Every structure is written in C-alpha cells, then in structure tokens.
Measured scan of single mutants.
Amino acid sequence: MAEQVALSRTQVCGILREELFQGDAFHQSDTHIFIIMGASGDLAKKKIYPTIWWLFRDGLLPENTFIVGYARSRLTVADIRKQSEPFFKATPEEKLKLEDFFARNSYVAGQYDDAASYQRLNSHMNALHLGSQANRLFYLALPPTVYEAVTKNIHESCMSQIGWNRIIVEKPFGRDLQSSDRLSNHISSLFREDQIYRIDHYLGKEMVQNLMVLRFANRIFGPIWNRDNIACVILTFKEPFGTEGRGGYFDEFGIIRDVMQNHLLQMLCLVAMEKPASTNSDDVRDEKVKVLKCISEVQANNVVLGQYVGNPDGEGEATKGYLDDPTVPRGSTTATFAAVVLYVENERWDGVPFILRCGKALNERKAEVRLQFHDVAGDIFHQQCKRNELVIRVQPNEAVYTKMMTKKPGMFFNPEESELDLTYGNRYKNVKLPDAYERLILDVFCGSQMHFVRSDELREAWRIFTPLLHQIELEKPKPIPYIYGSRGPTEADELMKRVGFQYEGTYKWVNP
C-alpha cells in the first residue's frame, strides 16, 4: 500500500466541504435556525453545542446559521458558553472563530407547556436576519415526558411559513410498544414523516454505516452471507464503567431499553437485511423493517440478565456495585447486563442465532459485530482449526478484520490463527472521521433520513421486546451478580454456547 501524504486539518475539512456542497440537498446560502429545546441540560452542553461548534469551526454548516437555545432556566448566552465550552476542545488559535460562533447564538427562556412562551420564541426567531423565511431545525434534547406539549406548541407557534421545518427526537422513544405508539401517533398528527428525525446516534458511527458497503459492494461476501456458512452472529456493546452516581436515570430504563432495543437491534438489521433497491432512505429502511418483521418476540429462556457488584480487589469506582450508587433505588432489580438470542425467521437466516450482548462495568470498552462461520467440513488438521470470524469493530479503534487459519512457519503443516486486517487509523491517516452527532446533524440539514429511525421500524423493535420488558417488570427477577471489570455473568457464556457459538479464547485482536 502506497504511503499517504499527511494533510493538514484545513485540507481534510476542505475535502469534506467539497463532498457536502456538491450535493443538491445542502442549501449552503439559505438562512437556517437550529433550535435546541432543553438548552440547559446535560445532553445540550456535552453533545449538541459542542457538535454545532465543530461543524461551524470546520465550515460545514450553511453560511447563515443561527443557534437558539430554549429552556425553562433563566440563562444568558454567557451562561450557555460557560457550561458548554469546556466540552468544545477549542484551541487558543480558534479564539476569534469561537467569538464568531457565540455571536450567532441567542437564548430564550420559557415554559414547555405555555403557548405564550412559544409565541415569544417565534418572535425572537423572526427578528433574526431573514428569520421569518429561514429553515428551522428543532432538536428535542428533553425528557420524553414533555415531548407531547413541546411538539404541539412548536407546531402551533414556531413553524417557518416559507422555509422547511424538521424536528429531531432523542431516544428513548417511549418505554414499550404502547407508549411508543402513543408518542408516534401524537407526533405524526403534527408533522409529516419526512419532517421527523428520530435519532439513534449509533447509526451515525462510521463502521455501522460501513456495514452496507461491506455487504453490498464486495462480491466475495454475497455468496457466504447466509445460514449455510454463518453459524452465529454476535452483536456486542461493552462499557468498562458503571453508573457513577447517575444511576437514578438509568434505573428508569435499564440496559435493554438503553442499548439493546435500539443500538444493537439497528446493527442487527444492517447485518441481516436484503440488498435495498438503492441507497435512498426509504429503500434502506424498507429492508430493515422486513428483517424486524421476521423476528419473533424474545423468549425468556433465551435471556440472561445481570447486575454488577463491587470488586473487592478493585480501586475507586470498581469497588462499588450498582446498588451502592446513592441515586439507585434500594434493592433495585434493574439489569445492567443483558444477553438475548433472537432468530430472523426467513430463508437466508433460518436457524442462525443472533446474540445481542450489552452491559456496564465490564472488562473493556468495545462495540462490534462478529460473524462466526461454520467449521470446515472434512477436517484434515486433527481438530487444530478454529472457526473463521469476520469482525466489524465499531469502537474504539474502528477496524474490519477476518480471523482465519494460516500455516505456522516451519517444517510442518501446523495451522495457527491469524488475521486479515483493515484498521482505519492506519489505512486512512488523512481522513477526519466525523463524530456520530456531527454526521447525523449534517444529515438533518441535508434532509437525508437514511440513518434515522422510521415509525414502522420503531414499532417493530418495541413489538419484539415489550413482552419481555413487561414480564421483567411484573416478576422482578433478581439479576445474576457479576463482578465489576469482569466479562459479565458466566451464564451468558453458557447461553451463547448452547445456541452454537464457540468461544476459543486463544486469539485476541490487537490494534496495530
């Protein structure tokens, strides 16, 4: 592979701008107003304001973009700056750019259920340069409990009458099928589907988006991507930290609602779906819905739930269990780990287990898709061969690698495990991989909904998990304890083995 010439960040961002501006969906010269509902909250200060700053800094926003914060707290732009700027990672050389960014910011205080507050917000936006005809993007960085009041008031008082209007809704989209349907029906009564952007930030990850290209742009994968060759698929999300004093919020939802029903299920769809007619948003989402419709409700015998306990040999936070978090209700049975087996009941995947695993306070930070292939028929190497695996590593250190057998150097035919490896950090030294939120917010500006969740996708996802969630809430089974920093409950490994996964433990990928 030829040595790549190092590029400056300015040059890299210039390439990104060229890609972005050559499309006809990006209205570079139009006025846009980006409204952050819930501007005083954690999500706004840690993710949304920093993301908008990065896009502005790199010249990736339309030229005439204004940012308006809205929340109940009586704040000023200076207050917003004070709480969000520490997350910007701005350099001293960017000081003038930073001043320009905050000059485009404003803030309006108001209630979430008060019509007069929204009329005041609308008047404020109209007073901005060309504000009355601007395109408006409303980001709901809010708890779902206020979605209905907020969307109703936005629709009645704050819509642009000339430009387009788009609304970005953060997960969780309800707690179960019934609450999700209620919320979807409410929002759909106010906005068209092409105006609604239900954001799952995992769909903005580079390697998640790469799944489609790997599958449908490489001839070698087509013939082997089926039940005849693939023994099982494992989708993993692991965090090495616990709730760390923020367990009160987590306890309301648990690990299945927080990660599995959305992030992991979306990745499953991209692995299992048929080739779409095109890369058009609805063509892709149509195929994802077909996959979900082929999955039956989760069966309790295919589920393992766990909850982390303190590690007596650990240090600091590792010595504390979930129930030691003062914000967690006493005696909570909320799971911090889950392993679930699903089956896609169609011709391509009949009988292939899709194993979804996620948890907190585990032994490493990792998100990946792992396809394990069947054993080689007619073994001539005296059971020395391990199964081939194709691994798409989402985070950290984005990579695609194939675990395969090669001859060990020497005189004899002794096979050993090795890999074919594409590590993004080595291959793409001159490429700026956008943060997931950067990519998705740019998608909203461009009107691309491919990486957002459609209402029928959402409904099918909740259909699969709601009976299990209701059973857990009714019966309150005690989750299996696992030690902070471990791989999780051993019962999860036993479940995976029972459905056909072979864990060798003899080879570990190392970032080159």
Rank of each mutant, 00 (worst) to 15 (best):
I199M: 08
R72G: 02
F216C: 00
S106Q: 11
G163E: 06
G254R: 01
W164D: 07
A134D: 12
H186M: 10
P172C: 04
V68W: 03
S157H: 12
R166G: 05
N126V: 10
G131K: 13
I48V: 09
L235A: 08
R246I: 01
S189M: 13
E99L: 07
R72W: 01
D114R: 10
A127V: 13
D42T: 00
L43G: 03
V68F: 07
A217T: 11
W54N: 09
F173H: 04
N64I: 05
N64G: 07
D30C: 14
T10G: 08
T65R: 04
L55V: 02
M37P: 08
K97H: 06
L61V: 11
M37S: 07
T145E: 00
V150Q: 01
H129W: 11
R166F: 01
N122Y: 09
A78C: 11
A116F: 10
H124R: 14
T65P: 06
M159D: 09
N185K: 13
N122I: 09
D200T: 05
P172G: 04
A39N: 02
A116V: 13
A78M: 11
G174N: 00
A71Q: 03
I48W: 02
V169K: 02
N135T: 07
Q22A: 13
Q119H: 12
E193K: 04
A25S: 15
C158M: 10
G163W: 04
T91V: 15
V233F: 04
I35A: 08
S73V: 00
E85N: 06
G69A: 09
L140F: 11
Q161Y: 15
K89D: 13
A115F: 15
P240N: 12
R198W: 04
P240M: 08
A109N: 15
I224K: 03
G254C: 04
V233A: 06
R57F: 01
K46V: 01
A103I: 10
Q119M: 14
G41F: 03
H129G: 15
Q83E: 12
F101W: 04
Q11F: 15
P223T: 10
G174L: 03
R17V: 13
E85L: 10
A127S: 14
A39I: 00
S84G: 10
N135D: 10
K45D: 02
L183V: 05
R104V: 11
V146L: 10
A6Q: 15
D24L: 05
L16C: 15
S123K: 15
C158P: 04
L177Y: 08
V169R: 02
A149K: 14
A44V: 05
F34W: 07
H32Q: 09
K45S: 10
F88N: 05
D30F: 09
I35H: 02
Y249E: 03
I80L: 13
N229K: 00
G222P: 15
Y112V: 03
F21S: 14
S188N: 13
Q11E: 15
D79W: 05
E99Q: 14
I196M: 09
A39E: 01
L98S: 03
L96E: 08
I48A: 02
A127F: 11
N185R: 11
F101K: 03
F253Y: 11
R166Q: 00
G131R: 12
L177H: 05
I187S: 05
I230E: 03
E239Y: 00
E252V: 10
P240S: 12
I224Y: 05
R104Y: 09
R166V: 01
N105C: 13
V208P: 01
A141P: 03
R17S: 15
P92L: 10
I15Q: 08
R81Y: 07
P144G: 02
L203M: 03
A141D: 02
H124W: 10
K46W: 03
A44N: 00
F253I: 05
L61S: 00
G41L: 01
R175K: 11
R219N: 08
R104D: 00
N64R: 13
D42N: 05
T51E: 09
G174V: 00
L96V: 14
S8C: 06
L130F: 10
I33R: 01
R166I: 02
G174F: 01
L121G: 02
H129N: 15
